Simulated scan of single mutants.
Amino acid sequence: MSGTGKSTALAELGARGHRVVDTDSDEWNEWVALPDGSQDWVWRLDAITELLTGHRAGHLFVAGCRSNQDRCYPLFDRIVLLSAPIDVMLARIVARTTNQFGKSPAERAKILADHAEVQPLLRAGVDLEIDTTAPLGAVVDQLERAADLVHAGP
């Protein structure tokens, strides 16, 4: 969800030496026509599959939120939802300078609608939810622990 701290967490994970991929770009997404004539920006399943199946060493952290992401869930070791209260998300979006999404009234309305409608659907499909109102270091520590648990073995 926009404003939950995905990009900030990815930057810190990258600074800690992990491989990170933010899927909010054309490299990972494509526009598709929906049956009702509208369009949706979805993951390019071939590219995401190649990314996930081709990674061999260390931890890979992938961030993104697309309507077709659940089709790739079996390829992930863990699915983590970063969440924050809506007022925190909106304040972050207003303050950020690296991404213009959410600045217009229509985009803020979409964020509010997604928070109410999409976030519960996301929550139902995750292994772990992390509240990103915690300090950044604590959020990233939790992400690393979640990854370490997968690779620790019995």
Score class of each variant (00 low, 15 high):
100 Q>N: 15
71 R>M: 08
68 N>P: 00
56 R>H: 12
143 L>C: 05
95 A>C: 02
95 A>D: 01
89 M>T: 09
51 L>K: 06
132 T>N: 07
69 Q>C: 14
127 D>A: 07
51 L>D: 01
54 G>H: 02
80 V>M: 07
121 L>M: 13
142 Q>W: 06
28 W>E: 02
28 W>I: 07
118 V>Q: 12
116 A>Y: 04
54 G>Y: 06
38 S>I: 01
133 T>P: 08
19 R>W: 10
111 I>L: 02
144 E>P: 14
98 T>H: 10
29 N>E: 13
25 S>H: 06
59 H>R: 13
47 A>T: 01
104 S>Y: 10
145 R>Y: 04
80 V>P: 06
116 A>K: 07
69 Q>D: 11
72 C>L: 15
50 E>P: 01
51 L>W: 03
134 A>V: 01
143 L>E: 00
55 H>N: 01
139 V>W: 11
84 A>T: 08
108 R>A: 14
83 S>L: 12
72 C>S: 13
101 F>C: 07
116 A>L: 04
110 K>P: 12
79 I>L: 07
138 A>Q: 14
77 D>M: 05
146 A>Y: 10
52 L>N: 09
119 Q>W: 13
115 H>N: 15
49 T>P: 02
77 D>Y: 11
21 V>W: 11
147 A>G: 09
69 Q>T: 13
71 R>N: 03
81 L>T: 00
77 D>E: 08
65 C>W: 05
138 A>T: 14
27 E>Q: 10
145 R>N: 11
80 V>N: 02
108 R>K: 10
42 V>K: 02
68 N>S: 04
92 R>K: 08
120 P>E: 04
57 A>K: 10
95 A>N: 07
93 I>R: 03
120 P>R: 07
137 G>L: 13
73 Y>N: 15
79 I>T: 08
53 T>L: 08
134 A>D: 07
126 V>T: 06
109 A>V: 11
117 E>I: 01
83 S>F: 13
31 W>E: 09
48 I>E: 00
103 K>F: 13
133 T>D: 01
85 P>N: 08
138 A>S: 12
46 D>H: 03
44 R>D: 00
88 V>Q: 05
31 W>T: 11
145 R>D: 09
137 G>E: 05
118 V>L: 15
32 V>Q: 12
66 R>M: 11
58 G>N: 06
41 W>C: 09
58 G>C: 05
44 R>S: 02
21 V>D: 01
144 E>N: 15
135 P>S: 08
142 Q>S: 12
20 V>P: 03
64 G>C: 05
74 P>I: 03
62 V>E: 00
91 A>L: 06
32 V>R: 15
132 T>W: 09
96 R>Y: 01
81 L>E: 11
65 C>P: 05
41 W>Y: 14
49 T>M: 12
117 E>D: 13
52 L>I: 00
64 G>A: 02
120 P>Y: 10
49 T>Y: 04
35 P>M: 04
115 H>M: 08
123 R>V: 01
120 P>S: 04
29 N>S: 10
47 A>P: 06
88 V>W: 01
100 Q>E: 15
120 P>C: 06
19 R>T: 15
35 P>K: 02
61 F>I: 03
147 A>E: 04
109 A>F: 06
